[in-house]
Design a protein around this nucleic acid. Structure first.
Lengths: 213, 213
DNA sequence: TTAAAATTACTCCTTTGGGAGTATTGTCTT
DNA sequence: AAGACAATACTCCCAAAGGAGTAATTTTAA
């Protein structure tokens, strides 16, 4: 499906330079592939795409400037021809299925071997989807309750979520952010509503599961 | 402190082959160092040590066959001359201080750059200890656990703590355990008192820090 | 320059949580 | 058998969280 007369260009987006280094060294000696760019932030990669395209992107979920689920949809909407392969340690069902419904063609856990990676790249280049064995097992278990999408949070909401996770009370948060306790209450209610839960502890648990904290 | 007429031998223990690949490619082109071996399990490295020694080991905490804290002590007891540098994403105070008291000479977070790694290796080779900036900050915060000893919990209290951590409300816990909601309230109050906190979220955080959950 | 979204702030009301006690019944242990 | 501790259950009172709205202002993106 892709031209054989030039190398397949790959981008790597991961917040750990050492992981990038690992992929880079695995791929750059392979005549099939070339590394078009490596990025530690999602935004960095999005900016790069405005000037240059890649065939495949290896996309981490945990990123310093937002989560990979969000960037996955953004990439797929703007550049549907790019093959997105998720790379993560997160094995939460909700994340995985969200990635696939956002256009990812693969979901690999980071403890994969070199061979598994190359096999996976071959597979997605054939137009198939690919995932680690453990991921496949997770998806096969029919889990009805966690089929809700990962909520999109605003800057302020993330900020308040963080403080709530530290165990701060509304009054303290209000004081810290120089806003009314009633406003904190509103944000708190919005968070509960977005995550479809009814208390802060489960809110925090869901947020942790989905990598939002 | 180490002989200059041969390369410094390094072992890497990490459950992610891709991370190993990253370190390997960073170090193997450096004339100062040689990679003596890479291992994805702690036991694999321990077995290796029976036949061969290394100067430095880069040791991950999260391992498939036990945790790095345990292997750290084991390595340090059997081969105190080996310089152990912990490598992890975990930034829990208790873990960090346990690693140092188990003989580690360094604690680096995995999102370090190539330069930071090489600097860190230089530092530990000079006999000093080294840690990431974030780690340093965590250690500088006064330790709550040493000021306030880890509370002793009864069987029932642990049980209720667990359910609270799952986000269950008092009423639900009461139903699950076939006791009165008022009794749950008493246990909850005892937990808050024992941990010297005043809300459930911080209770759970403290419990997590001290490994009680 | 508009329309949409985010942030702010409020009301009213109900439920849950938190602090400080008291007290009864078991169950170990010495 | 006595004392200690665990587990149970309750009281009263007040603070905080949760649910369901309304609404003004500011920011951001189309």
């Amino acid at each position: 499906m892709l031209p054989n007369n030039h190398k397949i260009s790959i981008a790597i987006v991961d917040d750990h330079p050492i992981v990038i280094q690992g992929f880079r060294s695995l791929l750059e000696n392979n005549p099939l592939y070339e590394i078009a760019g490596c990025f530690t932030t999602g935004q960095g990669f999005m900016t790069f795409l405005q000037q240059q395209r890649v065939d495949i992107v290896l996309l981490d979920i945990t990123l310093p400037d937002g989560n990979g689920v969000h960037f996955c949809r953004e990439i797929d909407e703007l550049y549907p021809e790019i093959i997105i392969v998720a790379l993560s340690n997160l094995n939460e069902r909700s994340i995985i299925s969200q990635m696939f419904s956002n256009g990812a063609k693969g979901y690999l856990l980071k403890n994969l071997s070199a061979k598994e990676l190359l096999d996976a790249l071959n597979t997605v280049l054939e137009g198939k989807t690919v995932m680690s064995l453990e991921v496949k097992e997770i998806l096969q278990q029919p889990d009805l309750n966690t089929l809700q999408p990962v909520p999109e949070l605003t800057k302020r909401e993330k900020q308040i979520l963080q403080l709530l996770a530290e165990g701060q009370k509304s009054a303290a948060i209000a004081e810290a952010l120089f806003i009314s306790p009633l406003t904190v209450k509103t944000h708190r209610a919005t968070l509960l509503h977005k995550f479809q839960v009814n208390n802060i502890v489960t809110l925090i648990n869901r947020a942790r599961e989905t990598g939002l904290i």
